[in-house]
Design a protein around this nucleic acid. Structure first.
Length: 315
DNA sequence: AGTGGCTCCTGGCGGC
DNA sequence: TGCCGCCAGGAGCCAC
């Protein structure tokens, strides 16, 4: 399921071939893919050249320039530049050469020179938006900072965690706090940070917050380096699968031995989402490390107090 | 405001 | 073999 590393992988692949092409036409085969009609989308996209590819969280942004020959554009909606946004959600795929499929792509961009960019999406959760670039800020107004951006500092993370009773797992999945984290990278991040997914976000101490910050960046970067996780159906626009799923520590490894300590990986449900963790590396009580059994059963540190955190850095 | 639960959607899978 | 029901989850919506 496409999260930040998968969307970034798609962006990088598209970057090698999409910019410079001109959208000649838009075909919508499934009207639920966009709140806008095929006619509206055509008016906003057709005749425009792809001038940029960006990513915001799990959203892929395709920047289109102004119509170069205005007479060719549909009238009524102007001919200025357009920002298009695509969310792949669970099973969305942008493909240049779609394989045989039971159903037609949900939408197709017909490009010049002769190329089709097709959006295949079995579960039909994916979405497409198109709007004036001036509306972009409002579109993303409620989304939290980019993990790799300057705004996502340890200080920011500590402020965001402060006072929250929600479990860490739910906190990481909340796009208003941090952009781009989904179920796979949330579980893997908490494992790397040695934090239990049910720990209240507000119970995380300063050193734990620092660990969580580092773990998130390391986990996401590893995902990007491996060109994403192909757990269900993720493939990049050339049809290539990522390999991050081959090095997962806990996600979907229920019942298997932890790669660090050999304890059995467990599964529980948090906020309706399957959640995987190592009960030994990620103890329920704050900050307790493997081997720090003397602390087992000790009370949760008072809020704002310094939690026990003598865990050695994991190497 | 924060939090949790429900909903959408469909292929795959286990159980009978 | 065939059918039924459950499971996966991103994000919007709603209730409390």
């Amino acid at each position: 399921m496409p999260e930040l590393p998968e969307v970034e992988t798609v962006r990088r692949r598209l970057l090698t071939c999409l910019p410079g092409l001109v959208v000649r036409d838009v075909v919508v085969n499934d009207a639920t893919v966009s709140a806008q009609s095929e006619t509206e989308l055509r008016a906003l996209l057709a005749g425009r050249r792809v001038v940029g590819l960006r990513r915001r969280g799990k959203y892929l942004i395709v920047d289109l320039g102004a119509v170069e020959r205005p007479r060719a554009a549909a009238s009524g909606l102007g001919a200025g530049p357009t920002t298009t946004v695509i969310h792949l959600r669970m099973t969305g795929q942008l493909l240049f050469r779609p394989g045989p499929a039971d159903r037609p792509p949900r939408f197709v961009w017909r490009l010049d020179p002769q190329t089709d960019l097709a959006f295949q999406d079995v579960r039909r959760f994916g979405r497409l938006w198109a709007f004036d670039p001036a509306a972009e800020e409002e579109f993303f107004a409620r989304m939290g900072p980019e993990p790799f951006g300057d705004a996502f500092s340890v200080a920011y993370l500590r402020r965001a965690l402060e006072g929250r009773s929600a479990p860490l797992k739910s906190f990481l999945l909340d796009q208003r706090r941090i952009a781009g984290v989904g179920n796979i990278y949330a579980d893997e991040t908490l494992f790397r940070a040695r934090l239990h997914p049910l720990r209240a976000a507000g119970s995380v101490g300063p050193r734990e917050a620092q660990r969580l910050h580092a773990a998130l960046l390391e986990t996401l970067q590893a995902g990007i380096d491996h060109e994403g996780s192909s757990i269900e159906s993720f493939v990049d626009p050339a049809g290539q699968r990522g390999s991050f799923q081959e090095i997962l520590s806990v996600y979907q490894r229920t019942g298997e031995p932890c790669r660090i300590c050999a304890a059995t990986v467990r599964r529980l449900e948090v906020g309706g989402r399957g959640t995987h963790y190592c009960p030994s590396c990620q103890p329920r009580r704050g900050g307790m490390s493997r081997g720090s059994r003397r602390l087992r059963g000790s009370p949760v540190p008072p809020r704002g107090g310094k939690p026990p955190d003598g865990a050695p850095p994991r190497g």
